[in-house]
Simulated scan of single mutants.
Amino acid sequence: MKVLLPFVIAAALGTLAAPIVHAEGTDSWVLRVGGAVVAPKDNNGTLAGARATVSSSARPTIDLEYMFTPNWGVDALGAWPFLHDVKLAGLGTVARTKQLPPTFGINYHFMPDAAWSPFLGVGVNYTNFFGTHATGALYGNSVSIANSWGAAVRAGFDLRISDKWLATVDVRWADIESDVKVNNTKVGTAKIDPVVFGASVGYRF
């Protein structure tokens, strides 16, 4: 059920938004393509008695937002899989993992008709870890990182380039905490809670 929750919430948001349309019936969608850097917080918890550090990662992103009023929109964020190293104090890199972090949210745009329009958003994040494998001191062991879902927040601004084109800069935060197992035995919880810095170009249609 936890795995499905983000998609249930996103579907509910979309259902609520669907009956409300712009009076002019145009430019209700914004497609943004760009990139983001996922920067985990400094202290990522303790694994097997050692302090853990999860590396940052940069990847291309795509975001689709439906504006159900000039001020309010719901969006879904996707990305190319991020790649992270997991390091333990005194041991170096002991695992590498990939993750996909689809994030769904609702955003309020303060000045949608202005050339510069700030916005704030809240939502839910689901992080799917996959391709995890042991390296270094743990090479030859089985390492797994549990999937995670949690709250997400967003702040940023749109810069209007033309009637159709815009540039967006934003910062997101997501609550990501995942159990880590070595040879099917839990060795701790990775507390990632990253800040995500993004920049993109958008097109209204």
Score class of each variant (00 low, 15 high):
Gly202Arg: 00
Asp63Trp: 00
Asn141Leu: 01
Thr26Val: 13
Gly14Met: 08
Met67Glu: 11
Ala146Glu: 15
Ala89Ile: 02
Met1Tyr: 04
Thr15Phe: 08
Arg59Val: 13
Tyr203Pro: 03
Ser57Cys: 04
Asn125Asp: 15
Ala190Tyr: 12
Val54Ser: 10
Trp72His: 13
Asn125Glu: 10
Asn183Thr: 09
Asp170Met: 05
His133Leu: 03
Arg96Asn: 14
Ala115Thr: 10
Ser57Ile: 05
Pro6Phe: 03
Val37Ile: 10
Ala199Trp: 01
Phe104Glu: 12
Leu83Ser: 15
Gly78Asn: 06
Asn44Ile: 14
Val21Gly: 12
Thr97Leu: 02
Val187Lys: 02
Lys191Met: 07
Val182His: 04
His109Ser: 15
Val143Lys: 03
Val153Pro: 04
Ile161Val: 15
Gly131Glu: 09
Val180Trp: 03
Asn141Tyr: 06
Leu31Arg: 02
Phe119Ile: 02
Val187Arg: 06
Leu88Arg: 10
His109Asn: 15
Trp149Glu: 15
Ser142Lys: 14
Phe68Ile: 12
Asp63Arg: 12
Val180Tyr: 02
Asn147Glu: 08
Phe130Lys: 05
Lys191Trp: 07
Asn141Asp: 14
Ala114His: 11
His109Cys: 03
His84Leu: 09
Gly123Glu: 13
Asp75Ala: 15
Leu77Pro: 07
Thr135Tyr: 01
Asp175Ser: 11
Gly25Leu: 09
Pro81Phe: 07
Arg51Asp: 12
Ala199Tyr: 04
Phe104Arg: 02
Ala174Glu: 14
Asn141Phe: 05
Phe157Asp: 11
Phe68Ser: 07
Arg172Tyr: 14
Gly73Ile: 09
Ala89Pro: 03
Asn43Ala: 14
